[in-house]
């Protein structure tokens, strides 16, 4: 070895003067294995931040009986701690969506959060039932239903019924679509859901056809 004869100074400073190839390889290997071990050790700690089995159980899909719902009735169920609205729409309500098509920001819900099997202006598997998460896409408040029409609603004379977010005034139509130039960027999200039968709705899980 060329550097076998070290003077006292280099011995004390432990300097890099004897960083030969074999030692450099050893340092690299140790650092690699040590780094991998460190990453591995971080796994349980990072994992502990993800939802626990309790949270998952609480967030499991919810079954709802929609058999008794009257036309025009709005029902709120809790799924993953969030309000999910089920609105049984009357033919008039469905017709109003045609009128709001030009007023809303994303009429075809192209950029909004919804499953692929929910399409068009009605945003539903069965047009009669709107299923959406009642959380404003702006900053997370829950909008209130404004079902009265026209000036009676206190919103505008041409109001077709829909939802108003109390926090920053975003307006949504009866398909949960946000009106143009509102603080909220997107339509209300539609959660994964499926019909177990004509009267049983399962929220939180895609159907078999999906």
């Amino acid at each position: 070895m060329s550097d076998a004869k070290l003077d006292a100074t280099s011995e004390h400073t432990g300097c890099a003067c004897s960083l030969d190839a074999s030692r450099r390889n050893l340092i690299a290997a140790t650092a690699a294995v040590g780094g991998a071990a460190g990453l591995g050790a971080a796994v349980p700690f990072v994992a502990s931040f993800t939802p626990s089995e309790r949270a998952k159980a609480a967030g499991a899909p919810v079954e709802v009986d929609i058999g008794g719902m009257q036309p025009g009735e709005l029902k709120t169920v809790e799924w993953r701690g969030k309000p999910v609205w089920i609105l049984r729409r009357t033919p008039e309500m469905l017709a109003s969506l045609k009128k709001t098509d030009d007023l809303v920001a994303d009429p075809e819900s192209l950029r909004s959060d919804q499953p692929a099997y929910v399409k068009g202006e009605a945003r539903a598997i069965k047009d009669e039932y709107l299923v959406c998460v009642g959380i404003c896409t702006h900053l997370g408040c829950s909008p209130t239903a404004k079902m009265a029409l026209g000036s009676e609603s206190g919103i505008s004379d041409s109001w077709q019924g829909g939802f108003l977010c109390p926090c920053h005034g975003s307006l949504f139509d009866l398909a949960g679509r946000v009106y143009k130039s509102m603080p909220a960027p997107d339509n209300l999200p539609v959660p994964p859901h499926t019909y177990l039968s004509d009267t049983r709705l399962l929220i939180g899980e895609d159907g078999k056809e999906a």
């Binding site: 011995e11 004897s18 030692r23 050893l26 340092i27």
Partner: peptide, 25 residues
């Protein structure tokens, strides 16, 4: 698995320790 990785790391750090300490006399 943990023990296996630590065993490998043990060998590597031992070799490195020997390599660095051989400068001392």
């Amino acid at each position: 698995w943990v023990l296996a990785v630590l065993a490998v790391l043990g060998v590597l750090t031992y070799l490195l320790k020997r390599s660095i300490w051989k400068d001392l006399h």
